[in-house]
Design a protein around this nucleic acid. Structure first.
Length: 158
DNA sequence: GCCAACGTTGGC
DNA sequence: GCCAACGTTGGC
């Protein structure tokens, strides 16, 4: 199976690329949208690469990259009553929500902002640039991933 | 903080 | 199963 490419959104107050760099790996949990859930459960595999995108930020944009190190498994926070992501309708024997684990790969010294992404002709089709696009886990093409990496290339810590 | 766009809920 | 009301996301 060929490696696939994804974009994961997160608000920097919730989890930042700096945290990921420090943590090394993390559980990517709390996704509560069915379409995004389906990607995590069915399609995100070990070895896939991820653009870590910070939303609701100044600026919003790609902050770094990560590699998937554990494929979809039941989101433990859905079973934790104290978690804001607790869902009492989710059952351990048939979990509603899924998580994956990712490992830090690179951090951009400068966030590749939405405006900068929009300025790239070869990125015109990127889902994240589409108006009204709210998915927190979405596929990107290999070409898009590599184009963003190239943009970050001059400014990204390796 | 505003508000457009979208997803979910629930009455019927 | 329709659709209005409501909640959330996220750029600006």
């Amino acid at each position: 199976m060929a490696r696939k490419y994804w974009l994961f959104k997160v608000e920097p107050e919730a989890y930042s690329i700096e945290r990921l760099e420090k943590d090394g790996t993390t559980c990517w949990e709390g996704v509560r949208n069915y379409q995004a859930r389906n990607f995590l459960r069915d399609d995100v595999k070990v070895g896939d690469l991820v653009l870590v995108y910070r939303s609701n930020a100044e600026p919003s944009g790609v902050a770094g990259t990560a590699e998937v190190c554990r494929a979809g498994y039941p989101d433990p926070f859905a079973f934790d009553q104290r978690s804001p992501y607790f869902d009492d309708k989710s059952r351990r024997e048939s979990p509603t929500w899924f998580a994956v684990d990712i490992r830090f790969r690179s951090r951009c010294r400068r966030v590749i902002s939405l405006a900068e992404l929009r300025g790239q002709n070869q990125l015109a089709g990127m889902l994240v640039l589409r108006k009204g696009q709210r998915l927190s886990v979405m596929p990107v093409t290999q070409q898009e991933f590599e184009a963003v990496e190239k943009l970050a290339g001059a400014t990204c810590a390796s």
